[in-house]
Design a protein around this nucleic acid. Sequence first.
DNA 1: AATGAATGAGTATTCATTCAT
DNA 2: GATGAATGAATACTCATTCAT
Lengths: 223, 223, 223, 223
Amino acid sequence: MARSTTSDDGGTGTAAGTGSGGASGGASGGGPSAAVPERLLAEATRLFAERGYDRTSVQEIVEAAGVTKGALYHYFGSKDDLLHEIYARVLRLQTERLDTIAARHEVAVPERLAEAAADVVVTSIQNLDDTKIFFRSMHQLSPEKQKAVRAERRRYHERFRSLVEEGQRDGHFRPGLRPDLVVDFFFGSVHHLGTWYHADGPLSAEQVATEFSDLLLHSVRQP
Amino acid sequence: MARSTTSDDGGTGTAAGTGSGGASGGASGGGPSAAVPERLLAEATRLFAERGYDRTSVQEIVEAAGVTKGALYHYFGSKDDLLHEIYARVLRLQTERLDTIAARHEVAVPERLAEAAADVVVTSIQNLDDTKIFFRSMHQLSPEKQKAVRAERRRYHERFRSLVEEGQRDGHFRPGLRPDLVVDFFFGSVHHLGTWYHADGPLSAEQVATEFSDLLLHSVRQP
Amino acid sequence: MARSTTSDDGGTGTAAGTGSGGASGGASGGGPSAAVPERLLAEATRLFAERGYDRTSVQEIVEAAGVTKGALYHYFGSKDDLLHEIYARVLRLQTERLDTIAARHEVAVPERLAEAAADVVVTSIQNLDDTKIFFRSMHQLSPEKQKAVRAERRRYHERFRSLVEEGQRDGHFRPGLRPDLVVDFFFGSVHHLGTWYHADGPLSAEQVATEFSDLLLHSVRQP
Amino acid sequence: MARSTTSDDGGTGTAAGTGSGGASGGASGGGPSAAVPERLLAEATRLFAERGYDRTSVQEIVEAAGVTKGALYHYFGSKDDLLHEIYARVLRLQTERLDTIAARHEVAVPERLAEAAADVVVTSIQNLDDTKIFFRSMHQLSPEKQKAVRAERRRYHERFRSLVEEGQRDGHFRPGLRPDLVVDFFFGSVHHLGTWYHADGPLSAEQVATEFSDLLLHSVRQP
DNA sequence: AATGAATGAGTATTCATTCAT
DNA sequence: GATGAATGAATACTCATTCAT
């Protein structure tokens, strides 16, 4: 059984091992020739972002992916599982990137914070569908999956907060600030990108990233 | 007919005519003795915030309000209408407050911006249910109501943006900033209060307001 | 009480006596200044013909008539009552006209039959809404009202059948025909006028009446 | 998906694929062992004829057919779809029969018209439920389905009318008659069979057919 | 690995009617 | 004579999920 209803395998398990060598296998991403689980995740992401989790029916997902319900339930234990997988994927990506940036101890804290902030803006815009889903659909996950996602999210925020705290200890950032509030302040802005940013608008992801990063840095920096 | 399906009466219409002085009338808020439309709105707000719009059934709302479905549909054209009414109410409130603050031309712009920022944080926390609903459920409104709410929201953002622009002209705020991005940056933070703030947590509304306002001001101020 | 829920007063009772001397009274027909019961009947007739009895709500009727539900229930015991009144009205009219024509014993039977046939076609077209309602909505009447209408209808058919029988006895009409079948044959055609006749089509009521009457006469006449 | 909401496949599609030879498949008609779509159609036909389309609930249909609502909606897109399917079935049958009869060019027109007339009476009586539904429920179809049925019906009438016109050209029928009116005259009679004919009455289908056909022929024939 | 028929509990909404005023 | 708020039962339709094949 490939089902992952209650699995805690970090989220890669469901799709792993399918299709290699098969006629349809191999491609990553959601193109028509991609493996079935990837295609399902890609279409689900698109549809959840477009009309919301509750308003997207399993039927619509499988039709968009060109498979049948049976196939979906072969790979995913439930609709909820699909959503959880989407969250896991984005959290994994962001955590990895933040860890890489934060670990560059040779770079001064303000530069690392600026880079981390800009990076999360860019990846949030690059995965705007995930960003939209993230803040809208958390409460539609089952309680235990919600708990798991919140825990992962908390760890991510803690790493970010550590950077702020490190900057305060080094005298770069204003000591009176509450680092947790700073993090909530900034990630509110990031999560809301999904409500107003449009790829075909006047601003590139990098422009937004630069400005958001700049605003954050000015807001915390020791004048 | 008291229905307000397409009314643009500013939202007070639904409750009008229920009679001050009547046995059931008069009270505002959602207590058990309040008028039926108010009770429905109060319970709907609570439930939408608690479990989301799509996951709240009309049945649950009327049970919580102690009336029947027929009564709900006597006052509101649809479930969607209820949600729209909630949005209209909070937008009206925030717009009024911002207008009052922004109009105090005898006060310098940074002080007015700081006050406006702190004020919207406090009222967002005081109406935390509305805040939660706002950013989660916008896309569950019917397209035309969504358009109406977005338009109203845009007007609100524009007023806020004018303050930033005024500050730039006066030389208080950094000229290189894009005022629209500043507004999106800050209101992301505000709208996300609903995802992390808890009334029984360690922070008062005023503490958050002061810190968010401070972060905003530092982020834009001419150093 | 003016209600006529179970009355057998021949159908005139409900509206009689209202409004004489009142500001709104006097006019017959359904114009905006007509008395309330007439206006209700007129709008109900129009709406029942347009969208069917079950698909017309009491709310729609009272809105079209410019009154409230309370007013409707003041004059009519039920929605069903309204429909019954419409049937009674058209049956009364047709019966009266047939009686008048059939009683002209100085005229030969074929001429009387031809005139009766043409007349019922003309009045059916002049009251096309009633004609549409008649054959579509009979089964939506309450069982007892349905019985009453059927009985009245049967009496009407019997009078018509008598003409055919009289013609057979006089040697004008073919003796082998079953008069009841002739009547059903012809009234099928008449009742179906509502499904195809349009006032703005190429045929006048009189043209249809002449041709239908001619077809009937040729179908029964002794060659 | 077996749904046929908008299908124009001539109406057989809904039942396709249920498998001849399967444990439940094969039987036509509405017996308890028939395939699910057939059983649903059979019970719907019976109930629509008995109490009308609007007064028959989907719940009643599925209970009568011994299945669940989900099963109905698996095969039919809507209640409206069921009705449309009933119309399509009867129209197909009648069109086929008329075509066969009208195509016998070796037979003189009056004989062919008489046979066609008698045949449509017999099949209308044999499918009396369909006949009842036909004239009562047309206006309860969705506008586009109504249009489709009317178009099909028009084609049927046109074929019948062609017979009349052919007879006029051949000198068998009176030249002054409007063939379209003759057709409306006759089919009014046919459609109304449902309102008065009873299988347990004194008349056999053939007796009615013979007399109706005779009345039609006499009404149009050159004396 | 995959199908698709079938389930059954759930959804928002409608509506004729009543009744205190 | 007339109002309109309120009822409560009924309505068509949806959908995540299961399971025999």
